[in-house]
């Protein structure tokens, strides 16, 4: 506790970097995942899912340092971390996003088509809004693991809350490690609550929805 109070400024800076390194991949990853989930035809869905599953299995540190050799980025710095975390978000959201789109009631799609909507209009104005609860549920799962996984970026020189683990361990300050754990946990919970709230705001019809047979 004492350590945290003395280093509020450092903690604040690291928290900001941490948020940045987590939010950017969450935005990029979820957009790609939603796009892929809607666009990949059914017969390829299995193989895309298999590839993403394999990607998801790769330990984050290994992916952080494998990327420079594959795409020529620098070994140290946030770019690899952001790319790797985006890939994990895509991998973890793809399946649930497909599920969310398949839950859209078929009559809604027929009606949209009958009204003369183009496929893109239908996706943006009908399917996407109706799929929101499922999409955000998937995003909430991805958000929690992204925030905690981002801390490993500290090993490759990203100064986020994971730095508190490395520094606290080296200097034998247990409080510093506990502070890092606590701060990351709080970020994850705040983000989760925020996404839950966003889901409620974006689907105002959900609370008064009539149960369809």
């Amino acid at each position: 506790m004492e350590w945290a109070l003395k280093n509020l400024e450092l903690i604040f800076d690291l928290t900001m970097t941490h948020l940045w390194v987590s939010l950017v991949p969450l935005v990029i990853g979820s957009v790609i995942a939603i796009f892929l989930a809607r666009i990949v035809p059914r017969r390829f869905a299995g193989s895309v899912n298999g590839t993403l599953g394999a990607l998801y299995a790769i330990p984050s540190l290994a992916l952080f340092v494998a990327l420079p050799a594959l795409i020529g980025t620098n070994y140290v710095g946030p770019i690899n971390v952001v790319i790797a975390l985006s890939l994990y978000v895509v991998a973890s959201m793809f399946f649930s996003a497909r599920d969310a789109f398949s839950q859209v009631p078929a009559p809604a799609i027929f009606i949209a088509r009958a009204q003369g909507m183009s496929p893109w209009q239908r996706i943006i104005h009908v399917e996407l809004p109706l799929a929101i609860p499922g999409l955000i549920a998937g995003l909430r799962v991805a958000a929690a693991s992204t925030v905690s996984m981002a801390s490993i970026g500290a090993v490759v020189g990203v100064r986020n809350l994971g730095y508190l683990f490395l520094d606290g361990f080296q200097r034998k300050i247990a409080d510093e490690i506990v502070t890092g754990l606590f701060a990351i946990f709080v970020i994850a919970i705040v983000l989760d609550a925020g996404l839950w709230f966003l889901s409620k705001v974006l689907t105002p019809w959900s609370k008064k929805s009539v149960q369809h047979a």
Partner: peptide, 17 residues
């Protein structure tokens, strides 16, 4: 759901410490 939000690196270091 709680376990997903716990950074494994922090848990590892805290236990060793």
């Amino acid at each position: 759901s709680i376990s997903r939000a716990i950074p494994t690196m922090g848990l590892l270091f805290a236990l060793v410490m």
